[in-house]
C-alpha cells in the first residue's frame, strides 16, 4: 500500500487541528481586559478588589507626601522582596484615588511591568483588576505575556518622558532585574522620580543590615540610578503578626539611618491593621504611609476572603 495515498492516516486527520504557529503574533492591546484573562491561574485577583466597598474606602484615603509626590515611582528590591505586590497595590490605590475629584491625585495612572526575569507571579497577572481600577497596564502582550524573555516595550521610553499623571515601575528582582533600568536611565527626569527599595527582613540576603546595604548598592550600580527611599515590607505571608510589621519597620529604620534614605511606606495586610477589635497596627505608629496590602499573587489552592459581587 502506498502510504501517501492513505487518506485515512492519523496524520491527515489531525494536522488541520494543530495549533497555529503564528498565534504569538495575535494583537492584544495593553490596558484592555485581556483575552488571556481566562488563564489567570496564579491569582484570584479578579475576585480581590473589583467592587469591594470596604477595600475602596481604605484605598481612597490616600495621602502622598514628600518623595511620593513625584511623577515616577519605581519599586526595586532583591528577589522575592515583594516589589510586585507593593507596586500593584499602590497603583490600585492611585487608580481608585484618581477617580475621585479634587483628591490630590491626578490621572492617568500607569504601571509598567518591567520584570524581565521572573517567570510567574508578575504584575501583568493582575492586569484585569488594575484595568478595572482605571490603571493603564503596560506589559508584553500576545503569547509574550507568558514569556520569560527580557522584553522592553517600545512605548516605555515615551511614557517615562511624559509629564502627566503617575507612572509606577515594577522592576524585576536583584541586580539582574534592575539592569533593565540601565538601558533607560538617560531618559529619566531625575527631579521627578523616586526609586524605592522594597525590604523584607525575612528574606535571605537582606536579613541583616550588611546584607541590605550590599543589595542596595548592587541595585543602584545595576540600574545606574540612585534610590530615593525605602519600603518596609517585612512579612511571613499568612504567619505575619502585627509585631512582625513593627519589627520590620524598626529594621528598615536602621537601614534608613545607615543610608540616609527615608522610609516612605510600610505595608501590612488589612487583617493586621487596627479596626478597633484586633489590636492591630495603627497609622500613628509610623512616620510614613501605611499601605494596606491585599495579596494578588496567590497560589491556586488559596481562596480569597474578599470577593467582588
Amino acid at each position: 500500500m502506498n502510504l501517501n495515498e492513505d487518506k485515512n492516516s492519523v496524520d491527515d486527520e489531525s494536522r488541520d487541528s494543530r495549533p497555529d504557529p503564528r498565534s504569538n503574533q495575535k494583537e492584544v492591546h495593553p490596558g484592555q481586559p485581556l483575552g488571556v484573562a481566562k488563564y489567570h491561574i496564579y491569582t484570584h485577583a479578579r475576585h480581590a478588589l473589583g467592587g469591594h466597598e470596604s477595600v475602596k474606602a481604605i484605598y481612597q484615603k490616600l495621602e502622598l507626601l514628600g518623595p511620593l509626590q513625584k511623577r515616577i515611582l519605581g519599586f526595586l528590591g532583591n528577589f522575592g522582596s515583594g516589589k510586585t505586590e507593593v507596586a500593584v497595590n499602590f497603583a490600585m490605590q492611585l487608580g481608585l484615588a484618581a477617580n475621585i475629584e479634587n483628591n490630590g491625585v491626578e490621572g492617568p495612572i500607569r504601571i509598567i511591568d518591567l520584570d524581565i526575569i521572573n517567570p510567574y507571579f508578575r504584575s501583568r497577572e493582575a492586569a484585569e483588576p488594575l484595568t478595572e481600577a482605571g490603571v493603564e497596564v503596560v506589559m508584553p502582550t500576545g503569547d509574550k505575556f507568558w514569556a520569560d524573555l527580557p522584553i522592553i516595550l517600545p512605548e516605555v521610553k515615551g511614557l517615562i518622558k511624559r509629564t502627566d499623571g503617575k507612572l509606577i515601575l515594577d522592576v524585576g528582582g536583584d541586580d539582574l532585574g534592575a539592569r533593565v533600568l540601565s538601558h533607560l536611565n538617560q531618559d529619566f527626569p531625575l527631579e521627578n522620580t523616586t526609586l524605592m527599595m522594597v525590604v523584607n527582613a525575612n528574606r535571605p540576603f537582606t536579613s541583616d543590615l550588611a546584607g541590605a546595604r550590599k543589595v542596595l548598592s548592587e541595585l543602584e550600580d545595576a540600574a545606574g540610578l540612585k534610590f530615593g527611599g525605602l519600603v518596609s515590607n517585612t512579612h511571613l505571608m499568612d504567619e505575619t503578626s502585627p509585631d512582625e510589621i513593627r519589627r520590620g519597620y524598626e529594621f528598615t529604620k536602621k537601614v534608613s539611618a545607615e543610608t540616609g534614605l527615608p522610609v516612605l511606606m510600610v505595608t501590612a495586610e488589612p487583617r493586621l491593621i487596627d479596626n478597633g477589635t484586633n489590636s492591630g497596627i495603627r497609622t500613628e505608629e509610623f512616620d510614613c504611609l501605611l499601605l494596606p496590602l491585599y495579596r494578588f499573587m496567590l497560589p491556586p489552592w488559596r481562596r480569597d476572603s474578599i470577593r467582588s459581587g
Binding site: 528577589f79 522575592g80 525575612n202 528574606r203 535571605p204 536579613s207 512579612h235 511571613l236 504567619e239
Partner: peptide
Amino acid sequence: ARILMKGNEAIGEA
C-alpha cells in the same frame, strides 16, 4: 527562625 523562600531557593539551601 522561619524565613520566606521560593521553593527553588529552599531546595538550594536544603
